[in-house]
Amino acid sequence: MDYAIILESVSKRFGDVWAVRDLSLRIEYGRVYGLLGPNGSGKSTTMKMILGLVKPDSGKILVDGIDVSKDPVEVRKIIGYVPETPRLYDYLTGIEYLDFIGEAYGMSPEERKRRIEEFLEAFELKGRENELISGYSKGMKQKIALIAALIHKPKILILDEPLSGLDPRSARIVKDLIHELAEEGVTTIFSTHILEIADAVCDELAIMYEGRKLAEGKPDELKRMAGESGSTLEEVFLKLTGAEDVREIVEALVD
């Protein structure tokens, strides 16, 4: 079977802290794969290693058959990435930023124009595209970041909290778009703290904790794995990450 993304025993350390420890993943083409975990569990580092932004200390990463450590630029040509905090250029207008991204991905002028205008229309940014990004709200910046990840028709999408700041309509567009793209063979890695979204959007999930993969499987499989098939993904997550003492913490804060 061909895999879109393969991680083989990948580890990354920052000083004394293991951000990712001996992580192995195999993600098939056309799957929506969720990465769940508390803050500092290694999700973002994993995503950055797949992008070739961070070099793993050990292990191997293949994206569409390309070794990331050997040709990270080639890998990035087929990836669309939305970071948790989009870092846009405040002194460009929305359309200038998207034009820059489109050009950087080697899109022709005609294709750039068509795709950008389609997405601006879809995300209700038409009429705001000629304003400087510095004047955009958080949600608008998130939309621009999403459009930038999607315009060049990536084979792989890496989305770190992509729905943050979005209105319900735009959030629904993104979720539906991910499913549509998955049917066309686009692979998505999706990181979120909102477990209901992960449950609804993802075909498969990995739960990470302190740099390691605690569990992997379909949402239903994970629920069965936790021994409570009727529980929510949130309860499974809290049980697996050992955070069941939430009630005691809340009671202590209120007292």
Binding site: T93, P109, N130, E131, L132, S134
Partner: peptide, 17 residues
Amino acid sequence: PVEPTIRLGPSKYVPRK
């Protein structure tokens, strides 16, 4: 307290080489 909205560019987007 909010950055004023500054509108630039032509109303029609025409990407060029």
